[in-house]
Simulated scan of single mutants.
Amino acid sequence: MRNDSRLSRMLHVLLHMARHDGPMTSDAIARMLGTNPVVVRRTMAGLRDAGYVRSEKGHGGGWAIATDLASVSLLDVHRAVGGPRLFAIGNEHPNADCAVEKVVNAAVEGALREAEALLVARLGAVSLAELARSFDARCNPPD
């Protein structure tokens, strides 16, 4: 799984798990994501270590939600799956010798810090429960 898609893919998985009766196997999750079950297990291990999911062994086992969705933010999931920096752009030469490059680097770094702070705040403000409610509303519109 590419780092830039890890958060959205794991949010996708967690919402399916929240609406699924019983545990989901790594194989089933891998088919849903179009990836390998080993990659799923490796990624889910971060969510398990954070206490958001649990793994159940044996027949009928698999991955299951282990916490209240309202207590987990999108930022929590990003951190649990070892998400990279939120913005992968930045300075090619952070310790540039050229004065022009230093000025450009300072401007870009400042903008990226501000944008990342806004994104972190937004991801921290949205819970998995809110995503689940939005999903439910979309799939079950009022009559």
Rank of each mutant, 00 (worst) to 15 (best):
N3L: 12
D4F: 13
S5G: 14
R6D: 11
R6H: 04
R6A: 14
S8P: 00
S8Y: 10
R9A: 08
R9V: 02
R9K: 13
M10L: 05
M10K: 01
L11S: 03
L11Y: 00
L11T: 05
H12G: 04
V13A: 10
V13M: 05
V13K: 04
L14Y: 04
L14W: 03
L14M: 08
L15A: 00
H16N: 11
A18W: 02
G22R: 04
G22K: 04
G22N: 02
G22W: 01
P23V: 01
P23M: 02
P23F: 01
M24S: 13
M24C: 10
S26G: 14
D27W: 06
A28V: 09
A30M: 06
A30W: 06
R31T: 14
M32R: 14
M32Y: 12
M32V: 02
G34H: 06
G34Q: 08
T35K: 11
T35A: 13
T35V: 15
N36Y: 09
N36C: 11
N36W: 06
P37T: 07
V38D: 11
V38G: 09
V39S: 14
V40G: 10
R41K: 11
R41V: 09
R42D: 10
T43C: 13
T43N: 12
M44R: 06
M44I: 03
A45M: 09
L47T: 04
D49T: 06
A50S: 08
G51P: 01
G51D: 00
G51C: 00
Y52C: 03
V53Y: 04
V53M: 12
V53K: 04
R54F: 01
S55L: 01
E56P: 00
K57I: 01
K57F: 07
G58R: 03
H59G: 07
G60H: 02
G61H: 00
G61E: 02
G62R: 00
G62N: 01
A64D: 05
A64Y: 02
A64F: 03
I65T: 07
I65E: 07
A66W: 02
D68H: 08
D68L: 04
L69C: 04
L69K: 05
L69H: 05
A70K: 05
A70F: 02
V72T: 06
S73M: 04
S73H: 01
L74T: 01
L74N: 00
L74K: 02
L74P: 03
V77T: 02
V77H: 05
H78S: 05
R79G: 07
R79A: 13
A80R: 01
A80N: 00
A80P: 00
V81P: 03
G82M: 04
G83A: 08
P84G: 15
P84S: 15
P84D: 14
L86K: 07
L86G: 10
F87T: 09
A88N: 14
A88H: 15
I89H: 10
G90R: 09
G90V: 07
N91L: 10
N91M: 12
N91I: 02
N91G: 12
E92C: 09
H93R: 08
H93L: 12
H93E: 13
P94F: 09
A96R: 12
A96Q: 09
D97M: 10
D97V: 11
D97K: 15
D97P: 06
D97I: 10
A99Y: 00
V100M: 09
E101M: 10
K102E: 08
